[in-house]
Design a protein around this nucleic acid. Structure first.
Lengths: 220, 220
DNA sequence: TTACCAATTTATTATATGATAAAAATTAAA
DNA sequence: TTTAATTTTTATCATATAATAAATTGGTAA
């Protein structure tokens, strides 16, 4: 079956569940995320419900069933493993691998994925710091806070970038704020809406608080 | 996606052109090769003709245009590079990579393919000995002969396996007749329809002439 | 409570890909 | 050369995916 559309829906619903911390996802949100018309989503959600991947209540939203979650997690795992593969093995820039992975993730058998997983040394995070679901379907949880909630004088480690757009990642990459980078918070100006920080061993940089909200950190 | 079917048609037509040494391919043959109904192929060939990928004359057959050949060669290149990648880097068996590659080949951007090409060291052959088209669209030609046309006493090197079915490759792999293997022809019995040969440094094996026809060799 | 606005669903339409059966053309045989 | 067998095409139908517009529902403010 041409299930790559189905896998995309399920993966997106899983990502929204993870991002929001809620089980039930409004169809409108799915439409926005996938760039589809609302009516299209209603139709597909009904089909996925009939096939046992989702539970759905009109005007309320939908939720993954166990079966749906399984397929969604597999797709998300494929996506993140491929992203890491493209960066670590193929040598691509982290800003350009998301769209590639979106296409490749649907074409991989479990055997290929497990081979690449082994090749990468069973990694736990993708290049953006997103946790890679395990082969048996667990998604590791970390409650890291957002960079913009730090205080001046704090030292912390960048752990995850929530915005995977090419532009944002290029920008963040240019100032070397990769996951694992240690930064010192020099100053926060809520009125100006900016945060001044210094990556270890590099020149200080200035971010908008809006941008800082897209960076998760681990306190040190 | 929409164009993976198109890419499959064009790639198949290119392979048939290469295998037969003729430009014009009958639609019936395409249908057999792709496992589709004849009517389906007529429809798609018309579409591909309207789009400038093919030239087509009813009841005669079709031929790739320059534009069609370009896309076909790219797809074939992707296929063969991915096969080699799956064997050499991921560690899969050569008998199982064909179907995988058939799915993955449509999901790869030129950037990804060129990265993997570099990673593999710009290879010239895939695991089955098929030549990998170059990035600028050339398909290297070799006029190797078939194993079954050898004479007793000959020594030659296996260069290419024409049958990519899982069963045949498993069998040939079990007796280690990979491309590069040197073999001595001990005996040929046309009446019995068999050929006796000895891979260098291994026990002799017996093949049907039918199987031997699927193996290309290079005289030494 | 009613009336309006936004969100959501339904109904219709479109495109890509495929199958099947009937019609037409080609090839082979008598 | 006429007929029979085969191949190829045409015509019709089916399924998956998506868009749009109209109708419906839900929430909110007067």
């Amino acid at each position: 079956m041409q299930s790559s559309a189905r896998e995309n829906y399920l993966k997106t619903i899983l990502e929204l569940q993870e991002a929001q911390g809620t089980e039930i996802i409004k169809l409108n949100l799915i439409a926005k995320e996938l760039g589809l018309a609302a009516g299209t989503v209603t139709g597909m959600v009904k089909a996925l419900t009939a096939e046992g991947f989702l539970e759905y209540r009109a005007y309320v939203g939908c939720r993954l069933t166990t079966k749906g979650r399984k397929l969604a997690v597999t797709t998300l795992r494929n996506h993140r493993i491929i992203e890491l593969f493209l960066v670590d093995i193929v040598g691509m820039d982290w800003s350009e691998v998301h769209d590639e992975a979106d296409r490749i993730e649907h074409a991989l058998s479990p055997k290929v994925v497990s081979g690449i997983d082994k090749l990468l040394g069973y990694p736990v995070f993708d290049p953006h710091g997103d946790p890679i679901p395990t082969a048996d379907g667990e998604i590791p949880k970390y409650n890291h806070s957002k960079l913009h909630s730090c205080k001046a004088g704090d030292t912390c480690e960048i752990s995850r970038i929530l915005d995977e757009s090419k532009q944002f990642l290029s920008f963040i990459g240019d100032i070397a704020l990769y996951p694992g980078t240690i930064v010192h918070i020099d100053e926060i100006q809520p009125e100006a809406g900016i945060i001044r920080l210094r990556p270890e061993g590099a020149e200080p940089v200035v971010l908008s608080l809006e941008s800082a909200e897209k960076l998760l950190i681990k306190a040190l």
